[in-house]
């Protein structure tokens, strides 16, 4: 588990450089990615479903990002985009290609469908947290005024 945390932390860190994150936020964004991955792997064992696990993982990333965005005064996207990257189903894409080449179309369809569903799960979790964050922000602004 600790090793997983370190690996996903460094993985998100690398992607943070690719996406040119503000340098002050790099470490915090990487912690978000690691957090998402840990939640993902725990719920993968609990629910035994990749789609559900990706959803909960992305939810964790989303909430973390909203809170950190408020704390450190940057748009939440800066944390969300690198954070959800470890959950993106690149492996599904590759397996689907491999199965198509091996002419195992049923397996390819199965993996491909799962890939699409995982992508949908991640983005719906991100949308859920973003819209909750925006609602809270508007409420807070109203109270402040």
């Amino acid at each position: 588990m600790i090793l997983d945390f370190i690996f996903s932390f460094l993985c998100t860190f690398g992607f943070g450089i690719l996406f040119n994150i503000p340098r002050k936020q790099l470490v915090f964004a990487s912690i978000g990615g690691a957090l998402g991955w840990i939640v993902y792997s725990i719920s993968l064992v609990q629910f035994d479903s990749v789609v559900m696990a990706a959803f909960t993982g992305a939810l964790a990333v989303g909430f973390y990002s909203e809170i950190m965005a408020k704390e450190r005064r940057v748009p939440a996207t800066v944390y969300v985009i690198p954070g959800m990257i470890p959950l993106v189903p690149g492996y599904g894409l590759y397996y689907a290609i491999k199965k198509i080449i091996e002419a195992d179309y049923i397996m390819a369809m199965e993996v491909g469908t799962e890939t699409v569903l995982v992508a949908l799960a991640i983005s719906s979790a991100v949308i859920l947290t973003t819209s909750i964050g925006r609602k809270i922000k508007r409420k807070a602004e109203k109270i402040m005024n």
């Binding site: 997983d4 460094l10 690398g14 450089i17 690719l18 990257i85 690149g90």
Partner: peptide
């Protein structure tokens, strides 16, 4: 200012490498 090219290339290497470890 952006990250320098060698930093980006190294970042890509780190990202891909540690992803492999995760899988």
């Amino acid at each position: 200012p952006e990250f320098k090219n060698w930093q980006i290339i190294l970042g890509g290497g780190v990202a891909g490498g540690f992803f492999t470890l995760l899988f």
